[in-house]
Write a protein that binds this DNA or RNA. Structure first.
Lengths: 219, 219
DNA sequence: TTTATTTTTTAGGTTTGCCTAAAATTTAAT
DNA sequence: ATTAAATTTTAGGCAAACCTAAAAAATAAA
């Protein structure tokens, strides 16, 4: 089965919103896609007809098992392209999203299989997010937010929870990226802010909000 | 200025048809795009309005200077992707067309610039067709068809004029690709067919029609 | 538990790109 | 030079994906 670019965008957005809330609302999806609630309702009907969606009028909705598989495939394509753009073409990791957004809709199965092989089957994209395999299986990465780890521990950044340009700008400023080695010096219980020390750079303090979005490996 | 996928396909097809005939007809374009003449007329009006086309009712049409620039940019993207697919992802050179057809519509300028750099600024695509540079300049490749060269000359295949699957199948069968070294043993004046000898393979005879489509370097 | 507010859906309309059938024009044949 | 045939355009429609404005339903507040 094949889908339009628009359908794929809806499916992908529903998938992402589902990670946070059990069931998705029309308004939140409209907001995510920068479109109108009425347009969302239109598309919901189509997706339901195609058995990609579990949907009852006025009751919210979520992807069906099939819909989920389709979503994972789109996510897979998106993240493989992001990895390609950063590691092969030399894009900055905070500038790949828009381009990957276009590339992900190129549908050739053979293309993605060969791309995956060319990239040597990467496990995560440049933001540290896991790349689903051909069957939609997502590799498990053991990680904790630096808002939650013990002080004085040397750790490696594994991923970043929020990928807005604002967040990425901040991380660049502090010289933090995937793979960066850092240490949590101390945590201030007053507001949950955290003092961190990045190798070869002066110690700095990040807010709890930021800390929650920086994940590091643990075993 | 930005164009829809459909507009880009029309522009590209008009460009290609123009290589053979001075002015393009509605029917031939409809045939090329596997669509109906009436649909073509619709689009012609749009492209004319956007100043991409010189067009007079019932009189045929051709790309304007602007239209030509746009076309060259699309051709550039298409051929860079083809080169990428063959040299990096390991696609067979006769199977890249369809995939490149999708990739060419991804519009990011930065993407194409970085891709070109990554590929090391190739001059020709896997079929030997020249790749226009950022400014639309097409590298000149000195070549002649083997229908026209002297006998007993050792030459290198530079490009193939017809890229239909049928032609590419035939070439694969005779072990002929871009860069293949071969010699024209003799030409039969009766029908213009040509006996050629590919290095390490038995001599074989190709029809005049095939010979006209095999080009080799000369200086 | 009514009433007010917010959310969601329906109704009806637009644009893009396609279609068929019929009319207009050009080209070819008698 | 007419007539016939082929080509091209117009007219009117359809589906996808969006929109606004109004109606319906659900949720929150009084």
């Amino acid at each position: 089965m094949t889908f339009t670019v628009s359908e794929e965008n809806y499916i992908k957005s529903i998938y992402h919103l589902q990670q946070q809330t059990e069931t998705v609302s029309t308004n939140s999806l409209a907001n995510e896609l920068q479109t109108r609630p009425a347009s969302v309702t239109d598309m919901l009907k189509k997706l339901q007809l195609k058995k990609l969606l579990e949907y009852e009028k006025y009751k919210g909705f979520r992807l069906s098992a099939t819909g989920n598989k389709v979503a994972l495939n789109i996510v897979r394509r998106h993240r493989l392209w992001e990895y390609f753009l950063v590691t092969k073409l030399g894009f900055e990791w905070n500038k790949v999203h828009a381009v990957a957004e276009e590339l992900e809709h190129v549908s050739s199965k053979e293309l993605i299989q060969k791309l995956d092989n060319f990239l040597n089957y990467p496990q995560t994209d440049p933001h540290g997010d896991p790349i689903p395999d051909v069957n939609g299986k997502i590799p498990v990465i053991n990680q904790v937010s630096i808002a939650d780890i013990a002080e004085k521990k040397n750790v490696i950044v594994s991923s970043v929870g929020n990928q807005s340009p604002a967040m990425l700008e901040l991380l660049n400023h502090y010289h933090i990226g995937i793979g960066t080695a850092l240490k949590v010096n101390m945590r201030f219980s007053f507001d949950g802010s955290v003092e961190i020390k990045v190798l070869k750079h002066a110690a700095c303090i990040v807010s709890k909000q930021v800390a929650k979005n920086i994940f590091v490996f643990y075993d």
